[in-house]
Design a binder for these strands. Structure first.
Lengths: 222, 222
DNA sequence: TGTCAATAGATTTTCGAATATTTTGAATCA
DNA sequence: TGATTCAAAATATTCGAAAATCTATTGACA
């Protein structure tokens, strides 16, 4: 009946999304009973999913006292953005050095999806749209996918998740409307031209711009 | 993280050590029943520990088919060493730029322990001695501890664990006797002199030398 | 009034059994 | 012989309840 997907795996994905999307707030207690009801499963899958998320930094565990949604702070946001910049810098340079035509094609494709999704919903706050988020994630993944380093890609992926939570937790300031499509297109162009220094610089500015925007609303910052 | 208290935490640490030290071989199946007996606990703590280790890359999970000790390969060893070099490079530079006298003192202290442990057991293959391994680990941790980036330190720690497993899995080639103490002392000296370029270079060579030695015995390499 | 101890209640953690899935191997058919 | 089906054995997964631990509250005592 339950084809191939285990309850534990399902809960893991749902719970991660609930945390990354900010539906569960930082510091909030995650009682087993509550989660059992929320996801309609027993205690074992819930605990196993929580253990995995703890290892990914989205959940905190205090032994014999239970789980909480991981706290956030201005310091961690800064650390996260700085580290992400470094990691993506390395991966991007390697991609530009090693990536073949397959990497290029995939990147162009991802850019197309992103641009399309941006156009369709340009009246709404499109950077909250679920589709747009998925395409955005895919673009950044495709950008560095040619680096030939699974370990680096795995690290990047996790940092991206952690960062996305900060975006979700911020109440869309929308100070000055950014032209996301142009930003991404510029990074892609530099990458395809094998101009590593420019691509890395643009990517760094891209991350910094997002971090700066979040800095404005010191909601959870302690 | 008080990992000693709950059974799950205890199993997690024991199992991780058994894998990192090579007592459980790559690819080996990890049946719940076997592990229950091995660690004298029930199924829940075992599965929870395995989930955490899966997230750390030491265990592989195939849904509904169970767990295995993560496979090893020459490609992953190369990827691991390269990534570790990059990550430690970043952290080391930040440490040298930001580290205060506390960082310096801790580093000197760690070096002293390492040198002492090396001297005491210089007749034996001391780089397999449990104490020596702990001091070695602590030295490398202390070296970058001043970087003021918890996220970077966490990543470095995990990569170090993964790398240590490759060392444990290799049958002590001992080709040319290395002067480990001198190598570490040189890295420390450059760091304390705030000579980032030299420190990073020496650290890179330190990692490369270890990786090269392991390359010789293509035991598990597929 | 303030501190401490004891207890009851709430929650986490763990176990053993029940359920679901995969693997094995024998029997059947082409 | 080789492929296929089907049951049973092995194994992984999940559940519900028991055990262990933490938290809150009450009452005794200084």
């Amino acid at each position: 009946m339950n084809l191939q997907i285990t309850r534990n795996g399902t809960v893991f994905m749902q719970l991660r999304e609930d945390i990354v999307m900010g539906r569960l707030r930082p510091g909030e207690r995650l009682r087993t009973e509550t989660l059992r009801q929320r996801y309609a499963v027993g205690g074992s899958p819930v605990r196993e999913a929580l253990m995995r998320l703890e290892s990914e930094g989205l959940v905190e565990l205090e032994e014999n006292k239970g789980f909480r949604v991981a706290a956030v702070s201005q310091e961690q946001l800064d650390d996260l953005s700085a580290t992400r910049t470094e990691i993506e810098g390395i991966a991007l340079r390697k991609s530009i050095a090693l990536g073949g035509v397959e990497w290029e094609a995939n990147l162009v494709s991802a850019m197309h999806f992103l641009a399309s999704a941006s156009r369709e919903s340009d009246h709404a706050p499109y950077d909250r749209n679920a589709d747009w988020l998925a395409y955005h994630r895919e673009f950044h993944r495709a950008l560095v996918a040619g680096c030939n380093s699974p370990i680096l890609l795995d690290i990047r992926e996790r940092l991206f998740d952690l960062g996305e939570r900060y975006v979700a937790l911020s109440i869309s300031t929308k100070g000055e409307a950014r032209d996301h499509v142009a930003e991404h297109r510029a990074i892609m162009a530099a990458a395809l031209e094998r101009d590593a220094d420019t691509a890395v610089r643009l990517n760094r500015e891209h991350i910094e711009r997002t971090t700066e925007k979040l800095k404005l609303l010191g909601d959870f910052a302690h």
